[in-house]
Design a protein around this nucleic acid. Sequence first.
DNA 1: AGGACTGGTTTGCGATACAAACCTAAAGGA
DNA 2: TCCTTTAGGTTTGTATCGCAAACCAGTCCT
Lengths: 99, 99
Amino acid sequence: MNNPTLEDIDKIIHEPARLLIVMHLSLVEKADFLYLLAVTGLSKGNLSTHLQKLETEGYVEISKQFLGKKPQTILQLTPKGARKLLEYKITMQNLWDKL
Amino acid sequence: MNNPTLEDIDKIIHEPARLLIVMHLSLVEKADFLYLLAVTGLSKGNLSTHLQKLETEGYVEISKQFLGKKPQTILQLTPKGARKLLEYKITMQNLWDKL
DNA sequence: AGGACTGGTTTGCGATACAAACCTAAAGGA
DNA sequence: TCCTTTAGGTTTGTATCGCAAACCAGTCCT
């Protein structure tokens, strides 16, 4: 029967705010903080902490640079992050097939 | 562009443990506590509190009866619960289509 | 009687999501 | 020049929540 279990669901990605972030990053493959801020609709604090979480888990790479005199934070999905997103998608779609 | 937002994701259903519960209930339309305990693999306490949450949100109806001398807790999805699950499914599938 | 099992519920705690408050530096106005 | 505002984030505080351990009422066994 092989019921779906909870362990199969990646909690890092499953969190809605992070799911949005990661999905957007997978579409553009590179983005800055303000872009994500706009497209996700998250608050700055919220976005910042979720990005940090994604970084410590190795899903996202955060790099900082200056654009003229303004600081800029660039985000991109790591290979691991991309893989995990794909796995998550498959897990969830399997779930739906049972429904 | 109409980006998906966080508000669209039903947090009640989104929680993995509850998603499992609700999916199983949608398949059988009626189940007792011990059946759910087995198929979901949740701990008793965890199952109990999630069911209570689903009840207070009006997604699940909890009724208790005696089967011989043993107490038995019967669970079933309410119409609202069934509708919400369907909406959740659609929301998530729309999300995947963008990916 | 008393110990173990059934069928759950309640309690305690650790983790987490979230926004408000904060911070540093640059730009603009008086 | 000083002072206020804006940009671009980060840190802090809080309230919620998921989870399992502990608990509980009732039944069965011996």
